[in-house]
Amino acid sequence: MKSYNDRSRKNISIFLSIFAFLWFLPFLYVVINSVKSRKEYNLGEFWDLPKSFSIVENFVYVNDRIDFMMGFLNSLFYGAIATTLAILFASLAAYAISSLKIKGKMFWFMLIYSGTIFPFQMYIIPIFRMYSNVDLYDTKIGLLVVYTALCIPFCLFVLRNYFYSIPKELVESAKMDGASDFKIYLSIFMRMAKAPIAACFLFQFTWVWNDLLFGLTLSKSAEARPIMSSLSLLNGAAGTNDVPSALLAAIIASIPTLFIFLILNKSFNYGFPTTSK
């Protein structure tokens, strides 16, 4: 693809730049309005440039209303641990399904995969009932386990698709050398799967971080509440709303997911060579 000449390359750049600008526009709105004061935002137009710089006031307002830091750290905990555990469990299962001797591979795969197809809203009541019976309602560990379980199906799906493409000869020759199944899993499969693991981590961390449904239903105290549920407390009753503060909180709350994307961005280049049949 090197022979594309400079002119068409330039056209492509222009084409992309236009869309990139469109994609960025809503953020421009967010940034401009998050520094306004409440009255300035309410009485002015959304395209007016900010006259005041009320970032500190807005953040103080947010902090008065909700325990922002606690929610932030809770979500960091859920996101990092649940995603890591899910990748670990899913990779073991994916390894078993793709190269160990088990019966009914498709059955096991579909069984675990089916965890992603049911609309999550319907999980609320059964999980809530189960949790209030075993005293896991409104606990950190309770939310952590739910998030881990719900991250597994997607990770399994991606990792199986990848493991399946790892050449059988590699496995055979390792077996000849006397390597155990577990060693092969560690030293061949996991080592080669850096890119898909990074992708799973990015996607599932983002999902856990942004989850609102389970956070709202399975927690009630600031100690267990994840960030998005905390933010939802900013929504005032009866049409009152401090929009600039909410926007500011939303920006800050989105930093970790963006940060992880930037860190992992390069590791995708390690390769993701899946093959299809």
């Binding site: 469990f89 073991l92 390894y95 078993a96 160990l100 088990i102 386990v145 379980a149």
Partner: peptide, 20 residues
């Protein structure tokens, strides 16, 4: 080999399959 499947199946079973 089935033990490799166990953690995933158990967790998904408890939360997803049970809810389904």
């Amino acid at each position: 080999p089935y033990l490799y499947l166990a953690p995933s199946v158990i967790l998904v079973g408890i939360f997803c399959i049970y809810s389904d």
